[in-house]
Design a protein around this nucleic acid. Structure first.
Lengths: 340, 340
DNA sequence: TTGTAGGCGTTATCAG
DNA sequence: CTGATAACGCCTACAA
């Protein structure tokens, strides 16, 4: 029994409710907003009318009349299908939902034009604040918004030429620690697999690796610009085929680490190379237990961003900007082998 | 050089722009909306004023004046951190972004109360349509919205007592096929590991398994209500310790499959039990290559939902409701062994 | 305790 | 081509 689809009915307004309840607009407003000074009898009549008519107040009109910013937060991510950004969104939500905030989300696919469009739409929606996770490109618009007073929080990225709250993992120090661990085990040729050097976190991780290289007085072996598993596997193949192959490898991301492992496994070399993976994604549990990983709590990045946003939105609009570095912990494992 | 954070400036309005350009409100409106019948000279002056003042039109006011629904779509998911829902969101975006739509998202954590609150907020935001992915509970509100005329699309779930567009994977037939494959290999005792029987997809998959059991005239071995890896591993332990342990196991979800594999691996039995995992998540690449999987294209679920929504929103508001079943492909692999 | 008047920023209508 | 003026749905003042 499919009811015939009825054309979208006009939403009842407060005036409709008032008419139905035989009272005035303002009284309905009071009831809807739970304001005091309404006689119980009248309040009941109004409640009934609301139920009967199926009234829902219009957030747009409300926001317009109140002048203040609404309860929408903009969340700009590179790709909703990437678990990293999902985890950030999750943390953001956890921290802001009690305030009645909703997330207005969009993916940029790392395309500056898309990011620009997205930001523009968010601004037109008059979001109360914006969280930008690891996208780059629409920066000019972002700076304008910051200058205008909209709270902006950058997650896992930086923003040149403007000051805004920022949340990152300890990319540099963790990667440094990981590489240092390998040098400490006696390795002299430790290679680094990195993603696009245009991404800020990749730069930071490479810097951490180079720190450790400098400390150890060793030679830097950097391969970057790697886009995924396949490219990582290829790169490792080349590395291992070289004159002086590395005895240990640091992978700057999960995906690269997986590619690394796949190749090592395929060649039966998984126990002859020590490796460290920087854990962006929830894959660590699936990885070979012989792998040492740097684990970052991605959801905590989101939660922190949410906290910074609410602080600025609800308590200290003019507080100086902060940068919070969430500790990513390096987890060495016994099975990271000493060099042959 | 941190600029002193300036207090949120009032947004310039069209009137401000009009004043600055020495013209009237309506002309500015025309320019902003790219309407014809404005002299180039005047248009330029207005454009300048817009740039100088940093004007952005207010979507709320626009929507209010236009009466029509805006360009916001509500997306209700169980958990933003779950890659499944992220993938759906991604597909949704892909399909709707060219229409200028933005996603208003929220996670329910499978809590009916939360889902209710979320839906309420979405309705107040006057979203043009709602996509509900695998959450259950706030159904009453959902039905009201459908009755009111708001397009609703259910993804990977059903909605009793109302008719709305629905998108699912071929859960039942794929699981049936997978189990049949195992029976075809000669197995007689094939067990099924399933999640909460309150979740619709779990019911469907179990039904598919039972179909195959009936076809094969075998005995049903169902363990359900399993919440994750750990519980799945435990359940498998119990199964294998029984009097007549199964020789093959069908796991209804990725997570359960991972738990299954973990236990088999731990006991050195990974090559003595054939198993089939239903692939919700992007884990297939990480799994033991001996596992046969049912793969569903989750993003396609989202894309389909997006298409259905736009069709209803922009073309056929009164079309009869559709149920689209996206094929999930069963991928047997050579290394799924025959019984001992 | 209740109701009236005015305005929020935009679009639509209809005169100039 | 251009511009007053009246909505849109709601809230904040300010009466009554």
């Amino acid at each position: 029994m499919t009811r015939p689809p009825r054309a979208p009915t006009r939403r009842p307004t407060m005036s409709d409710v008032a008419a139905h309840a035989g009272t005035s607009l303002k009284t309905v407003s009071r009831v809807v907003n739970g304001e005091p000074h309404v006689s119980p009898a009248l309040a009941d009549r109004v409640q009934d009318a609301i139920r009967v008519l199926g009234f829902r107040r219009d957030a747009s009109a409300r926001q317009l009349a109140m002048g203040a910013a609404g309860r929408l937060l903009g969340y700009v991510q590179v790709d909703a299908a990437n678990p990293f950004f999902g985890a950030v969104a999750r943390g953001l939500e956890e921290e802001t939902r009690s305030g009645g905030y909703l997330l207005l989300t969009g993916s940029t696919d790392a395309d500056p034009a898309r990011e620009g469009l997205l930001l523009e739409t968010l601004v037109e929606a008059r979001v109360a604040g914006i969280v930008v996770a690891a996208a780059e490109g629409g920066d000019e618009l972002l700076r304008e918004e910051i200058a205008h007073g909209t709270p902006v929080v950058c997650v896992d990225r930086s923003l040149a030429g403007a000051s805004c709250d920022t949340v990152t993992s300890s990319n540099r120090s963790s990667t440094r620690e990981a590489a240092a661990h390998l040098f400490g085990l006696g390795h002299r040729r430790v290679a680094y697999l990195g993603g696009s050097p245009r991404v800020w976190t990749a730069q930071e991780r490479r810097a951490g690796y180079l720190d450790a290289v400098a400390d150890a007085g060793a030679e830097a072996l950097v391969v970057e610009g790697l886009a995924g598993r396949t490219e990582a596997a290829e790169a490792v193949g080349v590395l291992l085929g070289g004159a002086e192959p590395p005895t240990a490898i640091v992978a700057g991301q999960d995906r690269l680490g997986v590619g690394l492992l796949e190749l090592l496994h395929e060649r039966g070399l998984q126990h002859r190379i020590a490796h460290v993976v920087f854990d962006d994604l929830p894959l660590a549990g699936q990885l070979d237990p012989a792998v040492a990983v740097v684990r970052q709590d991605v959801t905590e990045l989101g939660r922190t961003a949410g906290r910074l946003l609410r602080r600025r939105l609800e308590h200290h609009p003019d507080a100086p900007t902060t940068t919070v570095v969430v500790d990513a912990s390096f987890l060495p494992r016994a099975s990271v082998f000493a060099p042959r």
